[in-house]
């Protein structure tokens, strides 16, 4: 393809990314570095501050809750809307926090789906293949998208309104304390590549368009789409990061780490399902994780 077409594709995907993902890396880094004016996150570092943070979210009628309620009619997040707001929380800090994470993850799956649909050619693929690409790609995308929210000391949650410390997450009981540690390790390394939101948009599309997902019916058109996005990413990185040598190769290498993290993450969820009596998995996440790996 012509360079101009590849540039247009990069712009298109960046615009879609800005449209569907409410907390960009630019915003997140501004919050984390204290350069976002009045937008100072509430810090959760122990049980007391966790309770206060929950109150803050529940009383504040955040956009998150509004979105949950807005999507309730579609049966995607309604189950957890009822779990989180106004009714008795499930026992235990860990499970309650886990449910909030599930709620946000289900919403994020919806955002990623809309982004995937904006990739030129995606909606023309066999519908079953679209499902397969999302099923296998979406957790990789979600984990990758945690990186901009993280630094070595903790992570932004709840659309950047809260910063939860890594030490607090590590203090939760097993296996909850093990769930985010690998993501912190990955993020700290990934963040050294200093990708911006426009780079991320292209990289997410590359991940979604992986032609080697199990059960794909028609691999060829997926590989063709991915090849074009790869060319666009390569060119974009050269222009956007002229001094960063081999950045394209370094970015692509991260795909291996992401796959491993998804395998480990799903194993932890399966373990939770066996060990936690009260454990309730969101139907959308259940659908994605069933027979995944």
């Amino acid at each position: 393809p012509e360079a101009a077409d590849l540039r247009a594709l990069a712009r298109h995907l960046y615009e879609a990314y800005l449209k569907y993902f409410p907390l960009t890396k630019a915003k997140a880094r501004a919050i984390l570095s204290g350069k976002s004016g009045d937008n100072v996150p509430f810090v959760i570092h122990d049980i007391k501050s966790l309770m206060e943070g929950e109150q803050l979210i529940n009383n504040g009628q955040t956009s998150f809750q509004e979105q949950q309620i807005a999507t309730a009619g579609h049966g995607v997040t309604h189950t957890f809307t009822h779990c989180n707001i106004g009714s008795e929380p499930p026992d235990g800090v860990e499970l309650r926090f886990f449910y909030s994470c599930q709620s946000r993850s289900a919403e994020a799956v919806r955002e990623v789906t809309e982004f995937a649909k904006s990739i030129p050619g995606f909606v023309n693929l066999d519908l079953n293949d679209q499902v397969t690409l999302l099923k296998y790609g979406v957790i990789e995308v979600l984990i990758l998208m945690m990186s901009p929210l993280m630094n070595k000391d903790g992570t932004l949650i709840s659309y950047g309104q809260i910063f939860m410390t890594r030490e607090f997450l590590k203090s939760l009981r097993k296996p909850f304390c093990q769930m985010l540690e690998p993501k912190f390790d990955f993020s700290v390394k990934f963040n050294t590549l200093e990708l911006d939101d426009s780079d991320m948009a292209l990289f997410l599309a590359v991940i979604i368009l992986s032609g080697d997902r199990p059960g794909l019916l028609n691999v060829k058109p997926i590989e063709q789409l991915q090849e074009t996005v790869l060319h666009s990413l390569e060119l974009h990185l050269k222009i956007n990061h002229p001094d960063s040598l081999q950045l394209f190769a370094k970015v692509l290498q991260k795909m291996t780490d992401l796959r491993q993290m998804v395998t480990d993450h799903v194993q932890l969820i399966q373990l939770l399902k066996k060990t936690e009596v009260d454990m309730f998995l969101h139907p959308l996440l259940q659908e994605i994780m069933k027979d995944l790996y």
Binding site: Y20, A70, H74, E114, V131, L134
Partner: peptide, 20 residues
């Protein structure tokens, strides 16, 4: 198709709160 009915629905309908 039954196994992934929510994903199917998300792919076929726009459920963006903006468009609701």
């Amino acid at each position: 198709k039954e196994k992934h009915k929510i994903l199917h629905r998300l792919l076929q309908n726009s459920t963006s709160p903006v468009e609701l």
